[in-house]
Design a protein around this nucleic acid. Structure first.
Lengths: 199, 199
DNA sequence: CCGATTTCAGAACGATAGGTCTAGAATACT
DNA sequence: AGTATTCTAGACCTATCGTTCTGAAATCGG
């Protein structure tokens, strides 16, 4: 009973996400959110509780998508270096906008709510954990020398992952990113065969 | 003639830089700047022209320091891999605050003035250029195999450089960063002797 | 010590921020 | 059709934004 909504909740979240993504929390004003989402202020408050709630849910929306990419590429059996190569091979397609919303939120640590910041940080740590699992599997299978420090390497990989988002702001060229990702062979070994030349 | 200033310009710039660094352009409010710098609003406008001018000059101040670090470590003769190792060896000491002001500004692309954004981007590109020069010198001296793609590798290095700033927000541990930097041996060869094992 | 000059402290400005409220339009049950 | 309910559009609220202005305090030349 009652009047029908003229907005679509999922679409509104997407539009809000894009705005927060591009302009950050403080840089995005409620009036812009109203115009972009097609919601009036009243409905925006009834639905999301306000700017903070909308931000948190928009970030959650972004992170859900990011996690599904992580799951698809970094959790597929068998775990190993191929997953990591696939992930970085895919990266240049997925993030070509204004960097990465998750990372932008990390840099806004002292502006967003601690809940939002922790959500972003938790997601970043999860990605590192997934890298690590694949590296450890690669050591077990002999793909990666057991002399390599898998933990440190997983941290380097998440560092590169995050760095690519920043690099994409400075140089939004997918061709460039491909060149960078190609350099990972030096870290993981070429993709054809496993690294089989210990010193 | 006239009353003496009660503020120190250089100190005010440092304080403003720290605020913008931590909270970004929109996240930093004029009242906070007034309190942190010790300047009254009138003087702040007379001296810097307003919030935008103060931001630009604070960013310039940060970038001048960053460039002097780049110059000291990446321009010392002879150019080569040792410079790059020194740079990354030094990095864990220099950036332990809320990430990197330069990178935060990049993520605020759609919020800051285009002048500020371009200043940040120009600095990032210069760093990449310095990496490249050292890599090319390393190829000439035989430190680095000439089969390596120095351009792509320089892009990977700046990606790691930028990624470390983000990583430091998620995990502000210098020990962690040391572990990551140690992994660079796999990219550049161990630091004792040059990489001398072509396929 | 006086008048010109410069800075200070903070009041005041218009604009706009995030948030709330209301009158009316649209819907669904009876 | 009537009525209760739900949403819309936008006016409205207070607070605060970045900015400007004002009168008093401090400094210097004469």
């Amino acid at each position: 009973m009652g009047r029908n909504k003229t907005y679509d909740r999922a679409n509104a979240l997407t539009k809000a996400r894009d705005l927060f993504w591009a302009k950050g929390y403080e840089g995005t004003h409620l009036q812009e959110l109203v115009e972009a989402t097609g919601m009036n202020r009243f409905s925006l408050y009834a639905e999301f509780g306000g700017k903070e709630g909308l931000f948190l849910e928009a970030l959650g929306n972004y992170i859900d998508e990011a996690n599904s990419t992580y799951d698809r590429l970094l959790c597929s059996e068998p775990l190993g270096l191929a997953n990591i190569r696939d992930y970085f091979g895919d990266i240049r397609f997925s993030r070509d906008y204004a960097g990465c919303f998750l990372i932008n939120t990390l840099t806004e640590k002292h502006v967003v709510t601690s809940e939002a910041f922790k959500l972003a940080r938790r997601t970043a740590k999860r990605a590192q954990e997934l890298f690590l699992r694949n590296l450890e599997a690669a050591v077990v299978s002999g793909e990666l020398s057991e002399e390599r420090d898998a933990v440190a390497l997983s941290k380097l990989l998440i560092t590169i992952d995050q760095g690519l988002a920043i690099y994409g702001i400075v140089t939004p060229s997918n061709r460039d990113k491909s060149g960078i990702v190609g350099q990972l062979d030096a870290l993981l070994g070429p993709s054809i065969d496993a690294a089989t030349s210990p010193a």
